[in-house]
Amino acid sequence: MITYSTVKSTLIEKGTRILKVLQFGAKTADECAPFGDDSNPIANMTAIYAETSTVDEQVIIGYINTKQLAAPGEKRLYSLKNDKSISFYVWLRNNGILELGGDDHNLVRFEPLNQGIAAANGEINTELQKIQTAIIGLGGAYTAGHISTDIDAAKINEIKCL
């Protein structure tokens, strides 16, 4: 029989998440999830509780999702705060866009940005040399500085993109 239950608490025992649920009284059940999916429900979520063909082996096979926004063909992962509000999300849109927590700003590609900054530095340094030549030619004194911008510390090697 498959029934609705209310999640009360969770614990991990020998690498398996065990949920304590209210379902005609307090019961515990192992959580079943897709391979590689490790998520922990917050209290008072509605879980889908099922008995197995083995006596005294119950499982939670899923949860009632009340935060669904994905359109056909999309995938959305999110975390919740204890008050059930969205904490953070990753949204694979069906238009080829990936949203990481929002859509207000854009990520940048490090190498093209670094090349652009290096080119701008070169142009600035060339202009500084022209300024130095002009000032000295007019009888003044000026030593051009050298502009160099290092953004290497901003590079994230663990996140890759197109």
Rank of each mutant, 00 (worst) to 15 (best):
L98P: 03
I18M: 11
I60N: 12
D152N: 13
A33Y: 01
E127G: 11
N95W: 12
V108D: 01
A144S: 07
Q132V: 11
V7M: 03
G25S: 01
K27I: 08
H146V: 15
D38H: 14
K160H: 04
F88T: 06
I12H: 10
G96L: 13
D30C: 12
L162Y: 10
Q58M: 11
Q23G: 01
F35I: 09
Y78I: 14
V7K: 06
G139L: 07
K130N: 15
L92V: 08
T143Y: 07
V7T: 08
T54Q: 15
E51G: 08
E51N: 12
E158C: 15
K84T: 08
Q132F: 11
T46C: 02
K14H: 09
A70S: 14
G116K: 00
A118K: 14
L19P: 06
T149A: 03
L69R: 15
V55H: 11
E74S: 05
Q68K: 15
G62C: 06
S87Q: 07
Y49D: 05
T46N: 03
Q68R: 13
E51K: 02
I64H: 12
G116T: 10
P34E: 05
N106P: 14
I60T: 04
H105D: 03
D83F: 00
D152T: 15
T16N: 10
D103M: 01
G36C: 12
L113A: 12
G15T: 01
T52E: 14
E74N: 11
H105V: 00
I131G: 07
I124G: 05
Y4G: 07
A119Y: 03
S5H: 12
N106T: 02
Q132A: 05
P112C: 13
P34M: 10
F110C: 10
N40W: 00
C161G: 11
Q129R: 08
L80K: 08
L107W: 10
Y4Q: 14
V108N: 00
A50T: 03
P34N: 01
H105T: 02
N106H: 05
Y142G: 09
V59H: 07
W91K: 05
L92N: 13
Q68T: 12
N44F: 03
A43S: 10
N95C: 12
S9K: 12
D30A: 10
N114K: 14
I64S: 08
I48G: 09
A29V: 15
T10F: 08
I135A: 11
Y49V: 04
G140I: 13
H146F: 06
K20A: 13
G102T: 06
H146A: 12
A71F: 03
T149E: 10
C32M: 00
T3E: 13
G137Q: 11
G102V: 07
T149Y: 00
L77W: 14
I86C: 00
Q23P: 04
D103K: 04
Q68I: 04
V108R: 04
Q115A: 15
K27N: 06
H146P: 05
F110V: 09
T28K: 10
E158S: 14
I159P: 11
Q115S: 13
I131K: 05
N106L: 12
P41A: 09
M45D: 01
C32I: 01
H146S: 15
S79D: 02
I60D: 11
F35G: 04
N94D: 06
G139Q: 13
H146M: 07
E13L: 06
D104N: 10
I156F: 00
A50R: 08
